[in-house]
Design a protein around this nucleic acid. Structure first.
Lengths: 336, 336
DNA sequence: TGCGAGCGCTGAAGCGCATTAGTGATCGTG
DNA sequence: CACGATCACTAATGCGCTTCAGCGCTCGCA
């Protein structure tokens, strides 16, 4: 900036005014300064900016998953890609961190806050009794919870959420319309909020319809558990005629397990994956799956965070209900 | 820090010395200052640190891929997870960015450099005629190229590389031992350096053995192209008896395509995936695949970057040659 | 006993930017 | 024509930290 000031023949402060669009300099000077700055390839030092109270121009994102289950889901990279798309418009950086569990994640937030490293954070995988909203509220760190239900206890946090309940209800609708009455939901981690929402909605829908052979079995999202649970429930008597998997990897594992047991898909059993991806289209039969716009989800979340940083009040916004893309793995229930 | 100084009854400079392990204060004072700092939960402001010449305590990572092919590979999240493991030891942050292409990636590096946002970067997917090493050399930004061959033209950059040539040779060894003589390599993006290494090694191995029905077909890594190329080459006459896919997604797509055409695996055609993942174990038959330690790759790269930041000279280090895990998709070639 | 060396510490400057108070010139108005 | 108001700009201060140049003190040694 000193260089720019010298070359443009003005003071440093004038340069600051000019480049930040603040009043206090003539349009002619502003243009001249801008030109010189461009010539010199000047970019403000984020460190200096941050130090003089402008914030770190950075947003934080922590993924708390055990390392070995990290790669299996395409969801997160898509989400991050959507987030970036929005952040890039303002030249905000994304500080990314993987942590082994939520306790460590909280430690990361504390550290980032103490170090003034981020202006806000995006929180994923909200769970029951989640310590994170309380912590972030306490620290006063602007945050958007991705995938949580609106949380009345922490009005400082925004929420971007998908209507899992509505989606589950529509899946049950479709399956019962096909004649299915015994449905098993191979769920994800029981601690996650959306897992709970799906489980309780399924139970409610079953009660409403008087279905008794309907239940949820929580897992750790891994292919191993997906296959194991599939084998167990299909070995029961009578076996379910439809299975709903909380992610694509388990659905694939379940498909293989069903085939091993001699179940034909979809003649003997229908399969639904609660996550669409290339995988679902790569196996035979192709898997019917709930499609959602993960990148769009990320964009929405990022926009909410920007709004929060601009001083807008926190709020909860919904994203479109995921829709079931029917493929080859769902069909009419076999008559008893 | 002012608070700490006051409470400990010393000057700010003494606090700085004490907390940074620098000489100039007695051990007693140092301990006292440390205690007070801990009580207050003090953490240095990265902005201030960066401003006074200590660097940004941040490392950059850009992923230049079109958004839609982002999620398909588990490799990157695993890699990042390994990187973080090492960076976390020093409390270094990871600034993550996805970019549509290499030109944009270069722009990101320039911006980061101008803004003093990062101390160094990790570069993935090196390609032929890559502008990035030159740029980073010119900017003087410490960098580690992940997956590149050692680059003599840019001695300022470190390289962490896997021996694709050796791996390809060993795969060809195994396949020819099974009697395969017509092998098609469904390769990845032709611009990537490791794709070229694999292609040229395959050609050399074929020549060495006098095999004429061996070739590589570059693709964009997508399931669509993987399936299309599989259909095309299996429709040829005589068709190949073994296919090598440069990633797991294409291998899966190829498996489905082969089944569609009535080819049995492995009786009619053997399949090898150059990327192991849960997917390879989820299909039937299970895919034989080259396993590598992606997280370990990331750890090695991160350690090289730390060394570079500590002033060590750049160097090239190799990671273990990926090994072929034989599963159900490879078998003896069908006698003609 | 006197002097230099070294120790433990303090004060001040500076990193690059934003901001506030202040300055001189120009303008409009009575 | 004189006055306050406005405009275009400058000088100075501070953000939180590191660092460098002292500064007084004690200690060892001649």
């Amino acid at each position: 900036m000193k260089d720019i000031a010298r070359r443009a023949g003005v003071s440093e402060s004038a340069v600051s005014f000019a480049l930040n669009g603040r009043p206090g300099v003539s349009e002619a000077t502003r243009a001249r300064v801008r030109r010189v700055a461009e010539q010199l390839g000047w970019r403000p030092s984020t460190a200096a900016r941050a130090l003089s109270g402008e914030g770190a121009a950075t947003v934080g994102f922590v993924l708390a998953r055990p390392a070995d289950t990290l790669g299996v889901e395409s969801f997160f990279l898509q989400l991050v890609s959507g987030i970036q798309e929005v952040l890039a418009e303002r030249h905000l950086g994304l500080l990314f961190q993987v942590a082994p569990d939520v306790a460590d994640e909280c430690a990361v937030y504390r550290r980032w806050w103490a170090e003034h490293r981020v202006d806000g954070v995006l929180v994923v995988d909200p769970r029951a009794d989640d310590p994170r909203p309380g912590l972030l509220d306490e620290l006063g760190l602007p945050a958007v919870v991705i995938g949580g239900a609106p949380d009345v206890r922490h009005p400082g946090l925004s929420t971007v959420w998908a209507d899992d309940a509505g989606a589950m209800a529509s899946v049950v609708d479709e399956l019962t319309a096909l004649g299915h009455r015994r449905i098993v939901h191979i769920a994800g981690l029981p601690g996650l909020a959306h897992t709970r929402r799906r489980i309780s909605t399924l139970r409610a829908e079953a009660e409403r319809r008087g279905l008794t052979g309907v239940r949820s079995v929580p897992t750790d999202y891994s292919d191993a558990e997906g296959a194991a649970v599939t084998r167990r429930v299909l070995g029961g008597s009578p076996p379910p005629t439809a299975l709903i998997y909380d992610n694509d990897v388990m659905a694939l594992a379940g498909l293989a397990a069903a085939a091993d047991l001699g179940f034909r898909v979809p003649q003997d059993v229908s399969l639904v994956s609660w996550e669409d991806s290339a995988l679902c289209r790569l196996v035979s039969p192709r898997l019917s799956a709930l499609s959602r716009d993960s990148a769009g989800f990320g964009r929405t979340a990022a926009r909410e965070l920007l709004a929060l940083l601009d001083g807008a009040p926190a709020r909860a916004v919904g994203v479109p209900v995921p829709r079931l893309t029917g493929r080859g793995s769902t069909g009419v229930a076999r008559p008893e």
